[in-house]
Amino acid sequence: MRDLLELAVSASATGCVYALLALAYLVMIRPTGIINFAVGEWAMVGAFGAFLAVTKVELPYPVGVAAVLACMFVVGWATERIAVRPLVRAGAPLLAPILALLGMLVVFRESVALAFGPDPYPVPYPLGFGRLELGPLAGSYQSFFIIGTTLATFALAWLFFERTLAGKCFAAVAIDRRAAALVGIDRTRVAALSFAAGAVIAALAGLLVGPNVSAHYLMGVPLAIQGFTALVIGGVGRVEGALLGGLLLAFAEQLTARYAPLPPGYAQGVPLALLMLFLLVRPTGLLAERGARA
């Protein structure tokens, strides 16, 4: 039982990271319909950013993190301007920016590889290394920090999408682009903002998971797949879906790794199998969302 509760805390923390990545996809898919597979690389860049700002330059953690996230806002904005906007403006099919972003993914990854080489770099812990017991729940400081930060981020995202006019504008652009333009919503601006927000959220995921796994230039694609799996499980329709999907995925992963009679390597296959299963058997959420454009 103790074992299970300990696992629940660590799985929740991992699930929160997946959920943030799913949220990063979601804020971009909603207004633009574009699946940006580079979110994993943005998380990787965020982890390297935390190393640079906090460990190397020795800024205090909150200041360093704020600086990294501000930079990522610009990176997201710039990515949209470079790889998405010209194609949308030229009326290219939706696939074109998605493929261009795959190219950007490689550019991000290889730039980091060029700058840092193949070695892993330590990412700082905000609260130091230690263990916290909250009643029956026990886990590392970092686990609780991840869970708290993620819940706060989701609360903000939920308030934004459900309670503010700007958030409704995002949804309006997604539901009917032409109508959104008619009522005076600046589509290109919404798209740029959504990419900037996506980059910030993805980077946040990266610097939260960073201390546990270290920053490494190849960490992006697995995170991108896990985040997308969480999104597919939870559905694109609702913000809470991303959180639910992330948690479900992490629990499925950790419970199989711990209790299923499988060789440990096969546990890596769990998110992949889940992704295929959900895409093939329950794609309704996804397809309904995409079909809404027609």
Binding site: L95, I225, G265, Q268, G269, A273, L275, M276, L279, L287
Partner: peptide, 28 residues
């Protein structure tokens, strides 16, 4: 046969999962 229902990039992600799963099977 089941993937033909997926459009656009969703097929890409299903086949990406297949490709990764293949590597897991090779390793294990």
């Amino acid at each position: 046969i089941p993937s033909t229902r997926l459009e656009g990039f969703y097929l890409a992600l299903a086949t990406l999962a297949l490709a990764q799963l293949f590597i897991v099977v090779l390793n294990e």
